[in-house]
Design a protein around this nucleic acid. Structure first.
Lengths: 287, 287
DNA sequence: CGTGGTGTGTGACTGCAATCACCCGTGCTC
DNA sequence: GAGCACGGGTGATTGCAGTCACACACCACG
């Protein structure tokens, strides 16, 4: 793609920050709060030095928490675990680089990642979110090409990196995994197609509601109330939807006034009226 | 995807037509003009009744014109050819339906196809173009799911349909094809990512130029002048870029005034100054 | 030949979201 | 505890592209 813009040599800080005047540098450390389920399984990790995440060891139990790997025999998992590593990614840190031959597949254990691209003129574009249990960086396995986008940690995240060659060896031994991987890519195509169709919506509020709706965990969609953990910031939603941060804020204000959503601390968002959010998303109700 | 809008029961006519007042119905027949290279190879087809395209027979030579299949042994091709069919698709006709289990993979021999989706409120969204030699509808092979989008013929097109089960049998016999197929899907993901990044461009003229640039045949990109055969209409470009048809027209006017492009009859567009178009696309020059 | 459909060209108007500029609160870090 | 970066909140302004309403050229076709 001759047209692809210059690859950002360093992490571009969200434009919001720039505009408001601060020349910010992403902090490279940061305490990581792991909650609930995640905390329970993390016990399976041998944390040698709590403040030095790189020293954490991958256990087979940890790998087993990922749907893609959960069906594998223990011996295989143990082998895979030996070659893998866990790392904590600070907020805003780049997890995978575009254009380079990244040598790993990243399984997200806790937190949230975002695939981002940049336009020719340097604007950030949001492509997709990665939720805990999912993985990214697998495109290489399909055509040996480079990742077309960056993957960035939106919140402090725990990531299990499996080297590509280990993954290829695994695939050779367990070709049945190919089916799952293929399905994942197919799913990705569907997701992107849907995301693209969102951008066609002329009603901006509806666009935001759709995106929000997609962030509601599957098992909560039928419930009255839902919890979105580690929600993206307004800016991060904005770049997904091709709108400005301020516009996202105004839509959220409107939703909060109607008590459809409310904030729960900094790390969670409560959707108090799930059904109403869905109606907004589907255009059955105007915001 | 609970959010996906109601699947259009009938072909939605481009909004442009609706807006301007005409309640148009797509003509179901229409003479098909096949030019140059295409005409030469078409001789390989046994056309039984010229005006009844369904009676055309697929020959192995025809299949061989598609890169995906060109490496296969003649016997295999002959077998595949027997199960396949050629059809002519009229302008605007739906080639593949979203949401259904389409039972075929479509190889485009001549013409141009477009993947389109619809927003919840019924607006058309353009996803990608299919050029001669390419194919579409292969997503089913990866996860057995349905196509997320419609595929529509933009110009009268010649399409070779290979049944999915024939394709699956072929893959079983020639697993090396999987690599090519995988690469194709990976390429599709890259293409969609790039297309998405286009939408992030704040400068609309640049967006149009980028799209135009992508329509320039690969082998012409270094030349001074290039020919785009069967170019999409302004409306079809508009839905790819999330802008209005009128805006596309205005950009084209501007390009024509600068003699960067000119129209060549109804079925071709000449890019007289390829380099200048590229500069506009890359933002090196303002339109 | 007229007719209808389609694609394109163009001016006038307008509305909506981007932009700008600023504020505040919070939580991290030193 | 001070300082500061960041995320979020908000009003005023503006400009740009969407929309609407036509006009026209072209082609297929009876």
């Amino acid at each position: 793609m001759a047209l692809r813009g210059p690859i950002m040599p360093t992490l571009r800080v969200r434009l919001n920050g720039l505009r408001d005047g601060g020349l910010s540098g992403a902090k490279s450390t940061g305490s990581l709060q792991v909650t609930g389920f995640a905390a329970a399984v993390l016990v399976g990790l041998s944390v040698i030095r709590p403040r030095e995440p790189r020293f954490m060891v991958v256990t087979p139990q940890l790998l087993k928490t990922f749907p893609l790997l959960s069906g594998l025999p223990d011996a295989t998992l143990a082998e895979l675990a030996e070659q893998s590593s866990v790392r904590k990614a600070a907020r805003r840190s780049i997890v995978l680089n575009a254009g380079q031959n990244e040598d790993q597949i990243c399984f997200l254990f806790e937190g949230r990642l975002q695939g981002v691209d940049f336009t020719i003129d340097g604007r950030e574009v949001g492509l997709y979110f990665v939720e805990p249990g999912e993985y990214c960086g697998e495109l290489y396995l399909f055509d040996g090409g480079t990742l077309p986008e960056f993957v960035m940690a939106l919140t402090p995240s725990v990531i299990v990196s499996v080297p590509l060659n280990a993954m290829q060896a695994l695939l050779a031994k367990h070709p049945e995994l190919f089916a799952t991987l293929s399905a994942k890519v197919a799913g990705h195509v569907r997701k992107m197609t849907f995301q693209r169709s969102l951008l066609g919506l002329p009603n901006i509020a509806q666009r935001v509601c759709c995106q929000l709706w997609m962030l509601v965990p599957e098992q909560d969609k039928e419930k009255e109330e839902a919890l979105i953990r580690n929600p993206p910031t307004h800016m991060e939603i904005a770049i997904m939807l091709n709108i400005s941060r301020e516009t996202v804020t105004r839509v959220f204000q409107s939703l909060q006034n109607r008590q459809v959503v409310k904030r729960d601390g900094t790390t969670a968002l409560v959707v108090s009226k799930v059904a109403e959010l869905r109606d907004f998303a589907e255009g059955k109700q105007e915001l």
